[in-house]
Design a binder for these strands. Structure first.
Lengths: 338, 338
DNA sequence: CGATTCTACTTAACCGGTTTTTCAAGCGTG
DNA sequence: CACGCTTGAAAAACCGGTTAAGTAGAATCG
């Protein structure tokens, strides 16, 4: 009933612990006959290595960590994280690495978690999400020498390897698409202004607008549906309301759609809506939302692969993962004739 | 630069490892003077215990596990899990316990994960979610003797402690509310038929319907928006369509609302909609959905508290946590006059 | 006042692996 | 046949904690 250890195996095989260890790890110095016998006994006894013992002597925990810094209520609603985690998981479990998750209330707690995890050797590395401008975490991680990969970039990485998506191209394709439909007043309801990807999308949006002769407008939010609804109400109440709005996430886009419905502004007849971050949510509402789509689980898997490599001591470089593509649905159409 | 160990502290303090260990753990047998000195040195050197070493000698990993068995795409959309995790986290982090997360593809993989985690001593216990009728996991956990708490119940626990909510009362209050509004044909779009909570809600719904003279109808789904939409279309196309529909989760309720909009059936004038599982999603759409609301983070925190106790060897009993309450919003109204 | 109990430590073993060192036997070779 | 070389395995140290057992010296006690 008790869990077998290599000492138990050694006793049964009539050899010493070290021989068992060598045999189980496929290292030389053990005859084929002995090795086979040991492996058979280990299998028969249902032996599994103790992670704690391995971590203690080998120095590796076999765990990677993810700290998410979002308030409880808003966390749940965004499908992004769960999809990312799901993708990360798929990759890690095939490598027998576990994922440790921590939800924190603020950035300070997040940095404290990194320090604690590293000091306690609980994890071999961490995924860094929601990269901010002047992100303090970068410094902490560099100081600790902790393997880390940024889920984002290419700006603001500060020496850490990152994996990002080509959002600039995606933003451009959205603006081009809307312009082709005749829209000239396009608004963007952005997410948190401190996040790098908000900054980058904003830049790309303004560049594209300028080049294509479009009047941009917009504002930043905290990603919540409420904020999205408020921003939408403000935009639609202006004297020169936009004919198309691009939202930085799906939740705000859905909220924006509700506001339009509530204000009796038909979508897509009088207003076109585009959501960043495609998810079931976008297909759930009526009309279904045109969205910028990305295979998030695949992104998570690739990020996980890289962090696993990094924490195993293999060199990892920064890279661009993919270009999100526009998935046109019922919420976008020709601009209304003014 | 190297991480300090208790041996380092011992050397600096001029005592032995064991004295340091006793001092740091607040155990008797150390003079106050020595204890203070040791604590000061430990603080100064920035000592943190090695989890691996503790796990190895103490036998406890300081980690609790959660295995979620949902396909990647649908996982993200349901706010329930993230809220639950968030609540669990809040409680665990205050006790310095970490949470290990694994997303699996099927029930077999889930059981395999339990076995592996236990064999490797990676976790001290697990949270069991989505309890099924004849759930194989119960047997595995009992066989392993692994501390576990079921997030659900009271039926189907098979000896495991559980923490559930009084859904029977909640179901009843919903039916009473709808009957008071004049509804006599009420449908229920249920979730997965194999889950215990689906079975219990179904029973409660039929009991309440019978007692209150209501004609029930409905069907089971896989919780996805698509399935919810299909079920809604079928119900609304029947010769005697329901005047109110209760959905087993918020995603399906939103999908149902879209279907009604698409079929030009005004909500709540001609159809009332109630969602189980309140979330931002319900307030996001127009009209906002009447929902059965529960403080999920608080539920998660209580569950975490219990599992932490259980894995620490303290006895834990099964209990009912709370009764979900009805939050009336714009999607419910008086039954249409036929 | 000698025996006993406390106090404050030290010594040493242990948890379950990995890794370095040591050693004996078998082998070919000049 | 003495020598070095290789091979297969044992012995022992180590990772960083916890903990049972042992031991001085001081306090208590009949």
């Amino acid at each position: 009933m008790k869990r077998p250890t290599i000492a138990d195996i050694a006793r049964r095989a009539g050899v010493t612990k070290s021989t068992v260890s060598f045999a189980l790890n496929g290292r030389p110095g053990v005859s084929d006959a002995t090795r086979t016998r040991i492996l058979d006994i280990a299998r028969e006894m249902g032996w599994q290595p103790s992670r704690a013992a391995r971590a203690l002597s080998g120095g590796r925990a076999g765990v990677l960590g993810l700290v998410v810094d979002r308030p409880a209520r808003t966390l749940g609603i965004e499908p992004f994280f769960m999809q990312l985690i799901s993708g990360i998981e798929g990759e890690l479990s095939s490598r027998d690495i576990a994922l440790m998750l921590q939800v924190t209330e603020d950035a300070d707690a997040q940095r404290a978690t990194y320090r604690r995890w590293w000091a306690e050797r609980r994890v071999d590395g961490v995924f860094v999400v929601d990269l901010c401008v002047d992100d303090e975490r970068i410094k902490v991680l560099a100081e600790l020498g902790m393997p880390a990969i940024v889920v984002g970039g290419p700006q603001g990485l500060g020496g850490l390897p990152g994996l990002w998506n080509d959002e600039r191209t995606a933003v451009r394709s959205v603006v081009e698409y809307l312009v082709a439909l005749g829209h000239r007043r396009i608004a963007r309801v952005a997410g948190l202004p401190g996040l790098w990807h908000t900054v980058m999308r904003e830049e790309a949006f303004e560049d594209a607008a300028r080049e294509l002769g479009v009047t941009p407008s917009g504002g930043t939010t905290d990603y919540t549906g409420d904020a999205g609804a408020r921003a939408t109400r403000r935009l639609l109440s202006s004297s020169t309301p936009p004919t198309a709005i691009v939202y930085d996430n799906d939740v705000m886009a859905v909220a924006g759609l509700s506001v339009a419905t509530e204000m009796n502004i038909r979508v897509p007849d009088r207003l076109s809506i585009v959501a960043w971050d495609d998810s079931v949510l976008c297909r759930l509402v009526h009309p279904p939302l045109t969205a910028i789509s990305l295979d998030i689980p695949a992104y998570g898997a690739e990020v996980a692969r890289r962090l696993a490599d990094l924490s195993a001591g293999r060199p990892v470089t920064s890279a661009c993962h993919a270009t999100p593509v526009l998935a046109p649905r019922g919420s976008t159409g020709p601009a209304p004739v003014l």
